[in-house]
Simulated scan of single mutants.
Amino acid sequence: MDEELKSLIKVWISAIISISYCYYIPPRIKSGVPRLCSLCPVLALFLVLPLCFSSVHLSLITAFFLTWLANFKLILFSFDKGPLIPLPPSLSRFICFTCFPIKAQQNPKSQNHMPKLVFAIKVAIFGVLLHLYGYRKNLSPALLLALYFVHLYLEIEIILSFIKNVVCIFLGCDLEPQSNKPYLATSLQDFWGRRWNLMVPAILRPAVYAPMRRVSERRMSSGWALFPGILAAFIVSGLVHELLFFYLTREMPTWEVTMFFVLHGVCTAVELAVKKKTTVIQRWQLSPVVSRLLTVGFVIVTGGWLFTPQLIRASLSYRLLKSLLINF
């Protein structure tokens, strides 16, 4: 733990210095390829930093914040796009908005106590889940897989909510939510585009979807050009997740995770194509309850088929639990 703590301090000092450089120097350089070239050393560094940890949690968190979010935001920043444009008024805001899945709320709304209550419920459920792992030898493989999905979801939600609240207090501003009750999604488009990990689609739209759609419009109508854009965004997301899995397992990718996102990209594109046929929608419109069950069920089933096998082979669930108990 002492070595991991030293690595944590070194990594984040390096990250803060690098992002400070990005705040002061590249904005003075012409946007486009020249600015991107000035950021290349930082982008390369952020690819290496997650390898400094042996802890699963620290490696995953660093990879998500720096390799995934920061790198994509800085690439968009090179072309005067993305959440870092316009340039935040202070270095502290620039660092926070670069690393974390947060964005300043444009129209702040009055807050109620329900989010705090929901957060407390999630923490309580997570505690019960950790207790159940003590009886994992007596649980069926299917139930263990379901618990693993809930574990991943709750851990991500708890960590991101905690970071959001800390940053909100530090910056003194209202921040947009990271997710919007993904378990209530009524379609794949709703799940991936409007509810799950909202910062990711906010980055992929200008970075992948929009450029691919513009290129596709040269060869097909604008109505159909959105489909290559959707597939490209899901493929890039799959490749990034393969990289994250490499940081976790330190094993070569098997491409099952990429296939998971390709499958969901194809299904989302088919879903949108069906929605274009208004007569089909009117004839086969399902109730919200059924739509939610089908959507969440499809995500869980395909996740168990393609998303988790590599993690299970690497005994990552055990390593996650062991790391969590050691760290906390």
Score class of each variant (00 low, 15 high):
residue 202 A to V: 05
residue 163 I to P: 04
residue 178 Q to W: 00
residue 157 E to G: 01
residue 164 K to G: 12
residue 189 Q to V: 10
residue 117 L to E: 10
residue 141 P to W: 05
residue 185 A to E: 06
residue 216 S to M: 07
residue 158 I to G: 03
residue 189 Q to W: 07
residue 160 L to I: 03
residue 132 L to V: 07
residue 220 M to Y: 04
residue 216 S to Y: 03
residue 185 A to I: 11
residue 215 V to T: 05
residue 155 E to Y: 08
residue 138 N to P: 05
residue 157 E to S: 13
residue 141 P to N: 07
residue 140 S to N: 09
residue 127 G to R: 05
residue 193 G to S: 09
residue 209 Y to H: 15
residue 183 Y to I: 11
residue 133 Y to S: 14
residue 186 T to Y: 01
residue 130 L to W: 09
residue 130 L to F: 11
residue 192 W to A: 06
residue 133 Y to W: 15
residue 107 N to S: 12
residue 209 Y to I: 12
residue 167 V to A: 06
residue 108 P to N: 13
residue 165 N to A: 13
residue 152 L to I: 15
residue 182 P to T: 09
residue 183 Y to R: 04
residue 147 L to T: 07
residue 175 L to Q: 00
residue 192 W to Q: 04
residue 117 L to S: 09
residue 168 C to Y: 03
residue 134 G to D: 07
residue 201 P to D: 08
residue 190 D to L: 04
residue 128 V to E: 14
residue 192 W to N: 04
residue 212 M to V: 11
residue 172 G to N: 08
residue 211 P to K: 08
residue 207 A to P: 01
residue 194 R to E: 10
residue 145 L to M: 14
residue 101 P to G: 06
residue 127 G to V: 10
residue 168 C to I: 01
residue 120 A to M: 13
residue 122 K to E: 09
residue 109 K to A: 15
residue 114 M to L: 15
residue 183 Y to Q: 09
residue 212 M to N: 12
residue 182 P to A: 11
residue 124 A to M: 14
residue 202 A to R: 06
residue 169 I to T: 10
residue 152 L to P: 01
residue 174 D to F: 00
residue 101 P to K: 03
residue 127 G to F: 08
residue 198 L to C: 02
residue 126 F to N: 05
residue 102 I to R: 02
residue 141 P to K: 02
residue 199 M to I: 11
residue 210 A to W: 02
residue 218 R to V: 10
residue 212 M to F: 14
residue 133 Y to L: 13
residue 179 S to R: 00
residue 130 L to G: 13
residue 101 P to S: 05
residue 121 I to W: 08
residue 165 N to T: 14
residue 151 H to R: 01
residue 136 R to W: 14
residue 162 F to S: 14
residue 160 L to F: 00
residue 144 L to H: 07
residue 192 W to I: 01
residue 212 M to H: 12
residue 220 M to V: 14
residue 219 R to K: 07
residue 144 L to M: 14
residue 204 L to C: 05
residue 144 L to A: 04
residue 189 Q to T: 15
residue 178 Q to H: 06
residue 102 I to T: 08
residue 167 V to K: 04
residue 213 R to F: 04
residue 190 D to H: 05
residue 139 L to E: 14
residue 114 M to T: 12
residue 180 N to M: 08
residue 156 I to S: 11
residue 129 L to I: 09
residue 104 A to G: 07
residue 180 N to T: 04
residue 166 V to Q: 12
residue 145 L to D: 12
residue 213 R to Y: 08
